[in-house]
Simulated assay, not measured.
Amino acid sequence: MSFRFVNIFRNFDESLIDLANNPENPDYSVFNARYLNRDNNILDYKSWFPDFQLAGKFSKLSFEYEYRKLFRNNRQFNFRFFAGKFLSNNTDSNFFSFALDRPTDYLFDYSYLGRSEDTGLYSQQIIIAEGGFKSFLDERYRFSDNWMATVNTSFNLWRWIELYGDAGLVKNNGFSEKFVYDSGVRLNLVTDYFELYFPLYSNNGWEISQPDYGEKIRFIITVSPKTLTGLFTRKWF
C-alpha cells in the first residue's frame, strides 16, 4: 500500500511565455493512493492494483490486472486488463486524461526517453500502462476524459516472435463510447526491457500497407539502472 502527494511546479524561461500560459503545462498537485499485489514469477506472473488520484480539478479511479503464463512447451500467453473512470473532471485539456497508447505521465512514474516528443523516434517509445495500445489511432480516441476499458493479449508463435491484439471501449464526454482495436507482431526479446511492436491491422485499417510505416513501429527499451536491476532480482522458478 502506498500513499503520496505529488507537487509539480514548472519554471519557464521568459522567452517561452507561450508555454507557460499553455493549459497543457499547468502547475498541479495530486494525491495518489495505490495497493499493489505482485507475484514476480517468470513461469506464472500475476499482478494487480487499484489506484486512486485526487487533485483540484479531477478525481479518478483505475484498476489493472496482468497475467503471464509460460507453458512447459515454451509457449507463452500474456493477458492484461485496464479500466479507469473519472469521478469528477473539470480539466480543459487531455493532460490528465486516460491515454490509449502513450500516457502523459504527469506523476513522472515512467522512464520516457523523450517525455514531450510528439514526432520522431522518441515518440514511438511505448509504456504499457493505462490503455496499453500499440497503434496510433485517431486523435478523438487516444485519450478519455470520462472512462476507458481495454484488454491487451499476446501469445508466441516461435520463441520470441508473438502475435498481439488489443481491444477496448473509450468514452469521452459529449460522445458515444467507441470500440477500438489493434493487432500486430511483437518481438519479445527481453520482456519489459527490450521489445518491438509492428502494427498490422487496427481501426486505421491495414497499417502495414500505409505510408510511413516505419513511424508506426513501437519499442520498449530500458536504460535506467534501477529498472534493469529488476531483471536480475526476478524470481525465475
Rank of each mutant, 00 (worst) to 15 (best):
S2I: 10
I8Y: 13
D13G: 14
L19E: 14
N22I: 13
P23M: 11
E24L: 12
D27L: 09
N37T: 13
D39E: 13
D39M: 06
N41L: 11
N41H: 11
F49K: 06
D51Y: 04
K57A: 12
K60G: 02
K60A: 09
R68N: 04
K69I: 02
K69C: 01
L70I: 03
R72K: 12
R72S: 10
R75Q: 04
N78S: 08
F82C: 04
G84L: 02
L87Y: 06
S88C: 00
D92Y: 11
D92C: 08
D92I: 14
S93Y: 03
F95G: 07
A99G: 12
P103K: 08
P103M: 08
P103R: 07
L107M: 14
L107F: 09
F108Y: 15
F108L: 15
Y110G: 05
G114V: 04
G120D: 11
Q124A: 12
Q125D: 11
I126C: 07
I128P: 01
I128G: 02
E130C: 12
G131S: 12
F136G: 14
L137M: 14
D138L: 10
E139F: 09
E139C: 11
R142F: 03
F143N: 08
S144T: 11
S144G: 10
D145F: 09
N146P: 04
N146K: 15
W147G: 03
M148W: 07
N152F: 06
F155I: 01
F155E: 01
N156M: 07
R159S: 14
W160Q: 08
W160S: 10
E162P: 00
Y164P: 01
Y164M: 05
Y164N: 02
D166V: 05
G168L: 04
L169M: 14
N172E: 03
N173Y: 13
E177T: 05
S183Q: 01
S183D: 00
G184W: 00
L187M: 06
L187W: 00
V190Q: 00
Y193F: 08
Y197G: 02
F198N: 01
Y201E: 01
Y201C: 01
N204C: 01
G205W: 04
G205K: 01
W206D: 05
Q210G: 06
R218D: 02
F219Y: 11
T222N: 08
V223D: 09
P225K: 11
K226P: 00
T229G: 04
K235E: 12
K235A: 11
F237G: 14
